[in-house]
Each structure stands twice: as C-alpha cells, then as structure tokens.
Design a protein around this nucleic acid. Structure first.
Lengths: 340, 340
DNA sequence: TGACAATATGGTAGCGCTACCATATTGTCA
DNA sequence: TGACAATATGGTAGCGCTACCATATTGTCA
C-alpha cells in the first residue's frame, strides 16, 4: 500500500510527466522562462494549466536554502505609523518572489525575543525590526544570522547591521524650540503608554526645559493606557485641572493631540490663542483639523521603502555606502501653534 | 569535495548526534516533550541550547504536509478596519504554532486572484479573505483547496466555506432610518474610493430615499481618491456648493465624517443643528470628537477573533453549526445627529 | 566536413524535517 | 519465571523542490 501520502496536489514531477520533460526543466522554466526553448515552454505552460499546478514555496526554499521571506517585527498592528511602513514594505516586495512575514511584539521585549528566534528559524532572506532596543541575546542572534538586518524608526550608536530612521532627540528639541519661538512658556506634556522613542522625546523635553527653569512636574500628564483620541481628551482634562495656566502642550503623538484639541473645544479654550498644540508623526488628519494641527512629519512610508531597497541591494551582494540612514523629520507648522 | 551545502546552522541531526539520540527522538521531543523520557529530554534540551538550534518550519511543513500558516487577504494595510481584524487574528494565533501570512490585494481583483493562487501554493492550514466578491476562478480554487476558508466583513448568499460579517444593506438602512427619525430630510452622501461593501451601502441609501422622493443626485458627492479626513473636507465643501440646503450627510466611513465635521466647523455650520453627520465603523475617535459623531459600530476585532476560532474548530475536525455568522452592528447615536 | 563552443535538457542526490514501521526495554500478571 | 502488553527509542524513506554535474543537440568557423 501507499507509503507516505503527498498533498494530493500536482507537483513539479506531475507537470514534467504530463509535458514529457524532465522535472528540472519545469523548475528552470518557472524561475527563468528564457532558459527553455519555446517548444518546451509552451508544452510546460499547458501542462501547468491543465494540472492546476501551484509551486510549493517551502519545498523551493528548502532545496535552494533561501526562503523568499522578509520578516518584519513591529510593536503594534493598529497604529498607523507601523501600518504605513508595512504598506511600503509590501509595496516594495510586490512583483518579487518575496513574502512579508509580520510579527507583532506588542511592546513586549520577551515577545520580541521569542519572535526573533522564531523568525530566524524560517531562514528568512532578511529581517526588519522596529527600534534599537533589542535584548543582548537577540542582538547576538541577529548579528550571527548572516542576513541583512534593518532596524527602523530610530538611529543609534551601533546598528546591528543597518538602521533607518531619525533622531527622536533632535525631533523633540525642534518641537520645544518651535514652541519657545512662538512665545509659549508654560509648556505641558501629554503621553499615553510609551515606547522607547516616546521616552526619548519626553526626556528631551525635560532636558530642554529644566535649564530654562520652565520645567514643572505638574504639567506632565502620563498614563499607562494605550494611546487614543479619547485618551488625549482625558489627559488634557487632567492637565487643565493640574495646571490651568498651561499655555501649550506637547503631545506624544497625533491621536493625543487631536483629543487635546477636542477637549479644548469642549471647554471653550481657544487654540492657539489660549493653548498651543503640537503632535508627532503628522498623520493625515492633522492638516484637515480645524484649527489645523502642528506636527512633526516622519516619513514612515519612506522608512519601509528604504529598508526594502537596502535589503535588495544587500541581497545582490552590494555593500552599502552607509549602514545608517537618517531620514530626518520636518516640523510642519500649522494654526495650532501659530500666534501673532 | 562537498556536494550541497546546507544552511550552515544546526539541524535536528546535529542535535541528535550531540545528544547521542536518534533524530526522530529530537523531533518527537520538540512536538511533544511528554513522549520522551526525562533523561533524554534534558540531554536534548541541553544540546539544543549549546548548538543554538532553531527548528526549520518549512522542512517540518514539507515533511508533515501541513504548513502552520494562516493566510489573510485584505485590500489595504493602512485602514484601521483591516488593522483591527489583523490584530485579532494575530492575537488569536498567539501561543499556537501558526504563523499569519498577510496579502495586500490593494482593492484589485486581479491582484486578489494572483495572491489567492500564490497563497494556496503555501499549502496553508486555512485562508481568510476579505469580502464575498472573489472571481469565479478564485472561488473554484478555494473550494477545491480542502482547507477552511473564511470570508469576512460581509455575509452573502453562498459562502465558499464559512463567512463572518454583517449585512451592509441592513446597516445602511438603519443609518437612513435613524436620520429620518431625527427629522433630517435633505440627506446627502459622501464617499471616496469604494469597495463592494461601500457600494452596497450607497445603493441602499438610494433605494431607501427614492421611494420617499428624497433622493437628489446633486447631494451625492463621490471621488475616486482614497479615503481620508482631508478628502472628507473636500467632499463636504463640494456638497455645500452643489446643494447648500442639505441638512444631513451619510459618510461612507468615519474619516470622511471627521473631515466633514471639520469643514462644517470651518464654515461656521453648526452640527447637528444645521447639519447632521453620520459615519461608519465607529472608530475610536468618533466618541472623542466635539461634537461627538454618530456612527455604526462594526466589531472588526470580533470578526478576526471568530475567524480564527472557527478555523481552529475546523482544523480539529469539528463541523460548525453554522457556516455563516452575522455579527451584526450597532448604531451609536451621538451628538452629531441628535436634535430636539 | 570536422573541431569546437554554445545552448538545451536531464539525472541524481540532497535540503531538514516527519510518517511509518520496527525493535529494544520495561512493567505486569498468573 | 514466562508470556504478553505497554512504553521508549530508532532507521528508513519520502515530502517537493533545486544544486550540481553530465550529456545531447545545435550552431559556427576554418
């Protein structure tokens, strides 16, 4: 009786038999049709159609030692920041044989470790990871993986392999400087559950204001809840209770800024006359809001685009000019911080 | 000299040699540690650690004929609707051996066909696809795949296998009825680039208003651009030019509703007194807006959750009670449509 | 026409696992 | 203690491809 049962579907061998050619010729045609004569090509194509043959990527990956997988580890699936980058990565691999495999670390370092190890098991062609705060153990694994690794969103001291992002310290400095230049002085800070990048921005806010004697603990309102527009409203409400004389607010992100705007509107506080508002990321809605909201534009799509581009360069054997790309940021000044 | 070079990493055979056991025993231990004696188990565990062994899922999948992959095909990666469902799917498979593979069809039926065929090539354990409008060819492929298939977001006549969603016709009817009940009569419609679900809602709007003699072409403003808050502002502006006496607007989704609100604010049009606004999906920001925005809550997370749940039931060999699950919807009435 | 290169095609073995079966070891009972 | 079942372990072959090499066919030039 039959030993091992296959998948039941047509294999490359079935196609080869049907077309009366060798299996390797079918394999060759699938990967580079120009290497096969017209006669055999059309015969094979016909056989593929009539047998409804679909190649098995895992068998290919096993035989060639190269999985056509690009792994991506991000901390959240419902944040536009990461969604935009994911979109760019998907766009970038479109038309190539590569598949994108997404891991959601949920802002949990242990889960990140687990997923890095799991993903490396797939022998992916490359790996993209959010941030630069991986554990020592994971960094070791990634360094030894022998594949292109791209850390995204932030640039730091010593990239594992490549990093593409921006300096969140510089961005935060620009935000504070902008508010000061617009004559805001009693500057608060609103933030929900933070990732390392947000933490660096908050720290920079403190470092900027303290020497100017403008730092006041009661103007900083934080929560462990995850970020949302409603959360922004609640934080703003709290801030107005703690320190009603606050004249501007740095928001950890745009959702919170939008919530802060709604809270001001509901309390009849005029933005920007009585309250300046600045967000971070420059989501599309920021320019549509009334009044329009100042934010710091971070090109999240470009980060993904460059990541894929650099991975492909690397896979072709090219050595990158630079292993660190600062994509910068742009402070988009709008009505919410424009006075006088 | 060496024939074929492996990946260079430790394999199950390396672990077996190191631990002085058979390869199959290592395999067994990895899948069910209870099947191996304590003595061997600890020896194998030690060898795995010292060799830094990571199992190769594609070799396992090839040998067992079962890929631990659940494929998901959605039309967009930067829309919260799909992101929420994806999150639920990722949450649902956490702790299982399953991996989620995402395909982005970009609202393109041809791309959907291509991806369905490509994904089936992976021999996934199951497939989740958005909508019920797959091509005849794809439906055929999916029916013959012999794996659980879940169509999500919408319920229709004859599911390929299972479908989980809601009736967009019923939802649209509820929206119109609500506006009529609140004494709105000159009801407009704003929509950006549409998917089949949006189209069904728009058609329902027409079907509802025509018999009441309340349908007026100039109150329907559409665009092919992709949906955004700015797009909502532009559509609202256009509508106010076309038909300034419009007293309420049905928005194809919440982004457009928010944009419409901002446009009204900027023109000094009072919501809801002069203009009623209703969105669709009930994004989190709808309750935070000022005035708060009426919307139709669709439980996108639950759709993903149920999809995974039902797939697991099916993979365990259970036969589902129903192959169609209507998760319903809830019209959340807020200030933007509450008059009198 | 013959020598050789270029092109087209195929056979075999192996990628790293697990299904399937076989065998060794231990436990249980009369 | 012997017969048998239960448990633990291992060997071999095969999943569906492709790397590597070999060979057949065609084209080119003197």
């Amino acid at each position: 009786m039959g030993k091992r049962k296959g998948s039941g579907r047509a294999t490359i061998t079935d196609v080869a038999e049907h077309a009366k050619v060798g299996a390797i010729t079918v394999s060759r045609m699938l990967r580079d049709p120009s290497k096969v004569s017209d006669k055999l090509r059309s015969r094979i194509e016909h056989s593929i159609k009539s047998l409804n043959y679909i190649p098995d990527p895992k068998a290919r990956a096993l035989a060639s030692g190269q999985a056509d997988i690009i792994g991506v580890l991000i901390p959240s699936l419902s944040n536009i920041v990461f969604a935009d980058t994911l979109r760019a990565i998907h766009d970038g691999v479109k038309g190539t044989p590569y598949q994108v495999l997404i891991g959601n670390t949920r802002y949990d370092p242990q889960e990140e470790d687990r997923l890095i190890s799991l993903f490396l098991g797939h022998r992916p062609a490359a790996l993209i990871v959010a941030g630069i705060d991986q554990s020592e153990k994971s960094i070791q694994l990634l360094r030894n993986a022998g594949i292109p690794i791209v850390q995204i969103y932030e640039i730091g001291e010593d990239p594992i392999d490549m990093s593409i992002g921006l300096s969140h310290i510089a961005a935060s400095q620009a935000m504070i400087e902008h508010l000061l230049a617009q004559d805001f002085r009693k500057i608060g800070y609103l933030a929900a559950r933070m990732d390392p990048r947000m933490e660096r921005r908050l720290e920079t806010y403190r470092n900027k204001l303290k020497p100017l004697d403008l730092y006041d603990t009661k103007r900083v309102v934080l929560t462990d809840k995850s970020s949302s527009v409603n959360c922004g409203r609640a934080l703003m409400r709290q801030l107005l209770e703690n320190a009603p004389d606050t004249d501007a607010v740095v928001c950890a992100n745009d959702d919170i800024a939008l919530g802060a705007l709604f809270e001001c509107q509901s309390q009849g506080i005029s933005v920007p006359d009585q309250m300046g508002l600045i967000g971070f990321n420059d989501f599309e809605m920021m320019s549509a809001a009334y009044p329009s909201l100042t934010s710091v534009r971070t090109n999240r799509y470009k980060i993904g685009e460059l990541a894929v581009e650099n991975i492909f360069h690397r896979l072709k054997g090219e050595i990158p000019q630079q292993n660190q790309i600062d994509i910068g940021f742009e402070l988009i000044q709008r009505d919410s911080t424009t006075r006088g």
